[in-house]
Nucleic acid binder design. Structure first.
Length: 583
DNA sequence: AGCACGCCGACT
DNA sequence: GTCGGCGTGCTC
């Protein structure tokens, strides 16, 4: 017998080994086998009859039974193709930690392939969505809940009294939870991305929490959005899939419009007032506008807490007189600017312009970034409110300065006020998701304050459609506008993007290699290949990048031309990285 | 002649 | 990704 094994290496192909007499391994089982003269752990993807002439032998199985089903392997193969990654690196990032050597674990029954009739995924919004989820999971026989991060997994494991599969748990506990789920002994398991393929007895319910969260597609393997993998898994297994989000991604909202998902709104949230604070000419000297200052005072007087939400440093160029944002005329994205480089450079196309002296809108010449980080804000707030307790870490303080994630971690309606210090740093982010992120942040702030609280968004764009839709508590108003813009500019869900970046020891080397990559895809019909641009100028490692826009079958179109560059990264003193559907 | 380094192919 | 072969070129 011959076993075909894939390893965590950037090679598409599998390696064939002889199975010694008496050794029985199955598809979806990890084995140790010699590669390059050394024993390495890989995953069996096929077992077949055949003369094992000239093949080396599998050394040993590293676990007693398969941990992935044939269906899971098929999903892994699909995910690898979708993301232009190797099957081995994809699969081996979607399995539990290795057992300690010579451990004798109870043998889990080999998970089997189950197929039921396909059910439409459900997109759950509304303030009661979490309570409804707890209800729905009471009935279910087997459920997998995927959180965007470890903190979320920890909160939900506690709330659902479920076992954890994510890296916040010890390796042995993760393995135990995996095996228990496979044997139908753990009714509900909670994890992050590494748990996406855990076997479950049918009929299973799959849940994705905070569907819109970019943490569902972090850098690194598996290079696929958790949502896309679960949609695929649910379709193959016939599982019910619940996508939860107060503010879904525009992609998912559009799919619901398109009847690919079923939309369910669980409750209408009682809504707070969402006010704006005009930062024109203010943020240079103070981080807080008058409305936000008043909200802190009033809230403290009433015995409540205020959270000041700090997003990352603003890195786009704004006119401080009229609020004009410098955007690329071709791509529509706000332009990040580097004082050091002295240029406005579009991250998508290569368009670069010198820093303008004046605002083309109002002729004003007070241009600059808005950069208030958490430390500066804390110091400034302490000066302004010496009698209040102010902290970046202690949730009991009267003024809490924290990143947006804090809104999820606090109980709903637990805050008297939420101030978003610089909504423009979200709106003007150098990608096409600025509107979506701003809307999500405003909505999360409104949910965290509850109907009697106040949300103050500091911005130069009080009339932005994301703000007006949040004020009106209208998801349809936001998505109508957002989806229209995506269609006009050719962004997801209407077109797909792929980012190719090359890091090299010198700028010249990286440039030459990135040009080769771009040249390789230029002949493919139906694609827009943007010219390569230098990212992170002046960094130790030069990084050139270009973006490809294309149709739904983009990964299939790119596999041929880009394949050779992916298999031979370190050659030519450059590392080629390909990111499908970058977030 | 002897050795260090880096490029490049190969890995079952 | 990682290893080792082997060519180049430097040093003793």
């Amino acid at each position: 017998m011959i076993a075909d094994v894939v390893f965590d290496i950037p090679l598409a192909r599998s390696f064939s080994y002889a199975l010694p007499d008496g050794m029985s391994v199955g598809v979806g089982q990890r084995v140790s086998a010699p590669l390059h003269g050394r024993a390495r752990v890989g995953m069996v993807v096929a077992v077949r009859e055949g003369e094992a002439v000239g093949l080396r032998a599998v050394e040993r199985p590293v676990e007693a039974a398969p941990i992935l089903s044939q269906a899971a392997l098929d999903i892994g193969r699909w995910a690898a193709e979708e993301s232009l990654s190797s099957l081995g690196s994809t699969l081996l990032s979607l399995v539990p930690p290795l057992p300690p050597a010579r451990a004798s674990e109870p043998i889990a029954p080999a998970p089997s392939l189950h197929a039921g009739p396909p059910i439409l995924p459900e997109l759950w919004t509304g303030v009661q969505r979490h309570a409804e989820l707890v209800n729905a999971l009471r009935e279910t026989r087997a459920a997998l809940v995927i959180a965007p991060d470890r903190d979320g997994a920890a909160r939900w494991a506690e709330r659902l009294e479920a076992a954890r599969l994510d890296s916040g748990e010890s390796p042995s506990a993760r393995r135990a939870a995996w095996l228990a789920a496979a044997r139908g002994r753990a009714r509900i398991v909670v994890g992050a991305r590494s748990a996406l393929l855990v076997p479950l007895p049918p009929p299973a319910t799959l849940v994705l929490l905070d569907e819109h969260d970019p943490a569902h597609k972090p850098p690194g393997a598996p290079r696929i959005h958790s949502r896309e993998l679960l949609v695929r898994r649910a379709a193959i297994e016939g599982s019910r899939l619940l996508l939860l989000s107060a503010t879904p991604s525009a992609e998912s909202w559009w799919r619901a419009d398109d009847h690919q998902y079923r939309r369910r709104a669980h409750g209408t949230d009682p809504w707070p007032e969402i006010a704006t604070g005009d930062t024109r000419g203010i943020l240079r000297n103070h981080p807080l506008t008058l409305p936000l200052t008043r909200a802190i005072e009033d809230t403290a007087r009433a015995g409540g807490k205020t959270a000041l939400i700090v997003t990352r440093r603003a890195a786009t160029l704004l006119c401080l007189e009229c609020g004009h944002v410098f955007r690329c005329p071709d791509c529509g994205v706000a332009l990040p600017y580097s004082r050091k480089e002295g240029l406005l450079r579009c991250p998508l196309c290569a368009r670069a312009e010198p820093l303008p002296e004046r605002c083309p809108g109002c002729g004003g010449h007070r241009l600059g970034p808005l950069g208030w980080d958490a430390e500066r804000i804390e110091a400034s707030v302490r000066r302004r409110f010496p009698k209040l307790t102010v902290s970046r870490t202690d949730p009991r303080s009267q003024v809490l300065i924290a990143p947006p994630g804090i809104l999820r971690a606090l109980p709903p309606a637990s805050l008297g006020a939420v101030g978003i210090v610089a909504l423009d740093s979200v709106l003007g982010a150098a990608d096409f998701r600025g509107g979506e992120r701003a809307f999500a942040l405003l909505w999360a702030a409104a949910e965290a304050t509850g109907p009697r609280g106040r949300v103050i968004a500091q911005t130069l764009h009080p009339q932005h459609y994301a703000i007006e839709a949040a004020q009106a508590q209208s998801r349809p108003a936001f998505y109508r506008q957002e989806i229209k813009l995506r269609a006009e500019l050719g962004y997801p869900p209407f077109r797909r993007l792929c980012a190719v970046s090359v890091r090299g020891k010198s700028e010249g080397e990286a440039r030459a290699l990135v040009a080769e990559c771009a040249h390789a895809v230029e002949g493919v019909p139906g694609l827009i290949v943007y010219p390569p641009a230098l990212r992170a100028p002046g960094a130790v490692l030069a990084r050139w990048q270009f973006v490809i826009k294309g149709p739904a079958e983009l990964p299939r179109l790119l596999a041929g031309p880009l394949g050779p560059f992916l298999e031979r990264r370190r050659r030519r003193a450059g590392m080629v990285e390909v990111e499908m559907d970058p977030i």
